[in-house]
Amino acid sequence: MKLFSKNSLFIIIVVLILLLSVISVVFFLNEPNVIIMSDGSKEMEDALDEYSEKKSFGGDIPVYYYERGNIENVMESLPDEKPLLIIGPRTSEDANQLLPYMRNNENIFVISPTVTSGSIVGFSGRLITMSLPNNLKANRLARTIERANIWSVYVLVDTINETYCNEILDHFKLEYNGKIKGVLKIDNRSEIRVSEDMKDCDGIVSFSDALSTGILMSKLREEGYEGSFYATEYAFNEDLKLFDREMIKD
């Protein structure tokens, strides 16, 4: 069994080379400031705990916490006389707030392993991710759904990570050959509602987070929905364990 296709392996190798190149350049520049940006999510806290145990990056790196949508508070508090290497943030929406600072200061470098939006990653070679871009994810998801003979879907997106949701939805619309009967866009989870159009679809596609995905899944199952659920890695974290993970197909 092949674990990676040639293209996937090539992408991983290229990204690793770029990552090492950026780190090498930065560390030759005037002892740069290195920081970690965290939104306080469980995923980030688990990663920080593992870092604390292994110290694999070498030495102690300060962690700057921010509330979602308020990265500016961190950036304004940092000195700008040295090059800056930022590890994080976790989402495309948060990373988007760093772009104005990167435009104004060419000595800011960002390594955000989970950011996938092309408008963010493609902004500069100084911003690197370790994840596949949204266009490839949308393509693979569309092919997976079609192979399961799912030809009508309803989509869930949110405004919490709007940059990511909008972009991957646009790619999915181009890739999917079936019918998208509707899109439920939520500002908060209290807006999650089941409609008749949803229940008439062969499948549900979530580009939202784990908790929102699980809530919609549960509501639909309570109303007797027997279709399939699909989600991206954005929905796969500890919160999803609150629900039946077997319901999600991909």
Rank of each mutant, 00 (worst) to 15 (best):
F123M: 03
D209S: 11
L29F: 11
K249I: 07
E226A: 10
G182C: 09
G58R: 10
E53A: 13
M198C: 08
D158F: 01
N149Y: 12
R103L: 12
I108S: 01
M198D: 03
L136I: 15
D250I: 00
I86G: 01
Y66V: 02
L240A: 03
I17K: 12
F10A: 07
G40V: 12
F207R: 06
L99N: 04
V25W: 10
K219P: 00
L29C: 08
T213V: 10
L184N: 04
Y101P: 01
Y51T: 08
D244S: 15
D239F: 14
T91F: 15
T129C: 12
R126A: 08
Y101F: 15
E233N: 13
E81G: 01
C165G: 08
G58I: 13
R147W: 08
R68E: 14
N105E: 06
L141E: 07
Y101L: 00
R189C: 00
Y101T: 02
G88W: 00
A138F: 04
N139H: 14
L174G: 06
G125N: 15
I61D: 05
A231I: 12
S195N: 02
V155I: 15
L184I: 07
I111T: 10
G214P: 07
V155P: 02
L29Y: 13
E246W: 00
E76V: 06
P83A: 10
N149P: 00
E191K: 12
E31I: 09
K2G: 01
M75T: 02
M1W: 11
I86C: 05
L216R: 01
E238N: 14
R143W: 11
T159F: 11
S124E: 07
I111P: 03
F109M: 11
V115D: 02
R189N: 13
Y66T: 02
E238I: 07
F27C: 08
L240C: 05
S131C: 09
